[in-house]
Simulated assay, not measured.
Amino acid sequence: MSRIALITGATSGIGKATAELFADAGIDLILCGRRQEKLDEIAEKLSSKVQVTTLLFDVRDKGAVLAMINSLSDHWKNIDILINNAGNAHGLGSLDEGDPEDWDAMIDGNVKGLLYVSKAVIPLLLEKGKGHIVNISSIAGKQTYANGAVYCASKAAVEVLSEGMRLELTQHGIKVTNVAPGAVETEFSLVRFKGDESRAEKVYEGFDPLQAGDIADAILYAVNAPDRVTIADITILASAQSAATTIYRK
């Protein structure tokens, strides 16, 4: 029987790349996101390879998260893998000049959203007595940088939650993997800079950044590891990057 993976933030970036790689590996998909048109587009593309269903919700909306996941049929509730990928970065500035609405967006999406989805899915994994949760953190969760303290704090929370989940769930046969990417060329910077394409493009100038597929490769490796193996934590940097804000540009 094929495994079933639920992926949040599946309409772009790492989530989309993971969905595509999982489909190639024969893993059935529950694709979650905020853009139905994008979900439909990806589902249509991948449904020739595996079974696909979609759920439309914003991870920040607790009621919608619980209602949509609970609405799954018994077949689709037989989840094996949860990829907590949805998240965001908003703004780049000092704490005294930061916009509290940006802070709310990051904490609600990166921390509370991950909790809401996990709260809905973990009981399904416990019922099976096995499963795998992959949380997408960031190098920013390991190394704080100036003008990004709230984003770094939200991703540090993901690191702590990953460790807490592992402490609580290992005894029940559920693996937990934390993946901390460095500089990945996705919509990340475009969102952070509120649609300013020229500013977003400069983030990736002068070096070869990671691509979403690089992170998807690591996720697939983790979920395909032998039963005796848990990949607890993976930090992935671009070859030109040695720390969160240290990138050697040409």
Rank of each mutant, 00 (worst) to 15 (best):
I219S: 04
T230K: 12
D99E: 05
L169Q: 00
F188G: 02
L92M: 15
N147F: 04
G91E: 11
K130E: 14
A105K: 06
I234R: 10
G13E: 10
T186N: 06
I122A: 02
R34C: 01
T18S: 15
R199N: 03
F188C: 05
G98I: 07
F22T: 09
I133Y: 03
G164M: 00
A243F: 09
T235Q: 08
L125W: 01
A218L: 14
S198F: 07
E197I: 15
N78Y: 00
L39Y: 09
G13I: 10
G15R: 07
G182I: 03
A222W: 04
V50G: 11
F57Y: 15
I69L: 10
G148N: 13
S162M: 10
C152S: 08
N110L: 01
G141R: 07
A225K: 07
T53P: 07
S189W: 12
A218N: 14
A146N: 02
F207P: 06
A216S: 12
G9W: 14
T235H: 06
I174V: 08
M165W: 12
I215K: 10
L167Y: 02
D99H: 00
L46A: 05
S154W: 02
A120Q: 01
E185H: 14
G15P: 06
A149S: 15
V229A: 08
L220E: 01
G173I: 00
V121E: 01
G87D: 08
G93P: 07
S239M: 11
A120N: 04
A146G: 00
K38A: 14
G164K: 01
A43R: 08
A216W: 14
L125F: 05
D99A: 04
K128E: 00
D102P: 13
I231N: 12
L124R: 03
Y116N: 10
T186E: 03
I42S: 06
V203Q: 12
T8N: 11
A183Y: 11
S12L: 11
A86V: 03
T235R: 07
K16Y: 12
A17W: 15
A17K: 13
G141H: 04
A212L: 08
N135P: 00
I83D: 10
E168K: 02
D214H: 15
V184L: 14
E127D: 15
D80F: 00
H90C: 04
L55E: 10
S94G: 12
V50W: 10
S198N: 08
V121T: 06
D214A: 07
K130L: 04
I7K: 03
R35N: 15
A120F: 01
S189V: 09
I236R: 05
A10H: 13
L66R: 11
E97V: 02
A43I: 13
P226C: 01
L114E: 03
A146P: 01
K45I: 10
P123V: 07
G98V: 10
L29S: 10
C152G: 06
L31M: 09
T246F: 06
H132M: 00
R199T: 15
Q241S: 06
G98F: 12
Y116A: 09
A67E: 14
G164P: 04
R60M: 07
R166F: 03
Y151R: 07
I4F: 08
L237M: 08
V150E: 03
S73V: 02
R60E: 05
N110V: 00
S71T: 07
N78T: 04
N178M: 11
Q241F: 00
A23G: 02
K112L: 00
K194T: 13
